[in-house]
Simulated assay, not measured.
Amino acid sequence: MLAASNHCYLNNHLNHQERHMPYVNIKITKEGATAEQKAELISGVTQLLRDVLNKNPATTVVVIDEVETDNWGIGGETVTVLRQQAALKQQDQ
């Protein structure tokens, strides 16, 4: 019974924290963002939330998801196709 009680306390504690913890999910196409660039994004977003909303950086969560260009669509086309079309147009000019 003690284990169940501890589990409930932990879940309640986490649920309470989640209401106050900013979570930012950045999605970018997987096209070579460096570790340094991602670190700068994480730092910058964390600082922005501190400056604008007075959020605690220690509880701010930033996640960067990199999506393959074949899995990202705009206007009915994949980003892969759009990049190829843009490259062809540039060659024609």
Rank of each mutant, 00 (worst) to 15 (best):
D51L: 08
N15W: 09
T60W: 00
I42N: 00
N56Q: 08
A39K: 11
H7F: 13
T59K: 01
V24Q: 06
R19E: 06
V24E: 05
G75S: 09
G44M: 01
N25A: 11
N25F: 12
T69K: 15
I28H: 04
E66T: 01
E66I: 01
E18L: 11
G32C: 11
Q47W: 02
K27S: 13
V62P: 01
G44F: 02
M21Y: 01
V81H: 05
D92Q: 15
L10N: 12
K30I: 01
A3I: 14
K38Y: 06
E18R: 09
Q85I: 09
L14V: 12
A58M: 06
G44N: 04
E77M: 14
S43K: 08
V81E: 07
A39D: 06
Y23C: 09
K89I: 10
K30V: 02
V79K: 11
R83N: 14
Q17L: 13
T80N: 12
T78D: 02
L53V: 06
E68K: 04
N6H: 12
L88D: 15
H20S: 07
R83I: 06
A4N: 14
T59Y: 06
D65V: 07
V61P: 00
Y9M: 08
E77H: 15
A3L: 14
N12Y: 09
K27I: 12
K89V: 11
V52D: 03
V45S: 00
R19G: 11
K30T: 03
N15Q: 13
V81Q: 07
A58Q: 11
S43G: 10
L10K: 12
R19W: 01
A39T: 05
H13T: 02
L10F: 09
T69E: 12
L53C: 11
D70H: 09
S5P: 00
L49E: 01
P22L: 00
V79I: 15
T60K: 00
G44D: 04
I26Q: 02
Q47D: 10
D70Y: 07
E31R: 13
N54E: 10
R50L: 08
G73T: 14
G44C: 04
T78V: 05
Q84R: 13
L49P: 02
L82G: 08
G75K: 04
L10A: 14
I42G: 00
A86D: 10
Q17I: 02
G44S: 06
K38Q: 09
K55T: 01
H20N: 10
K89L: 15
T34C: 10
H7I: 12
E77N: 14
A87L: 14
A86P: 03
V62N: 03
R83K: 15
I26V: 15
Q85M: 13
T80R: 12
V67I: 15
A4V: 05
N71C: 07
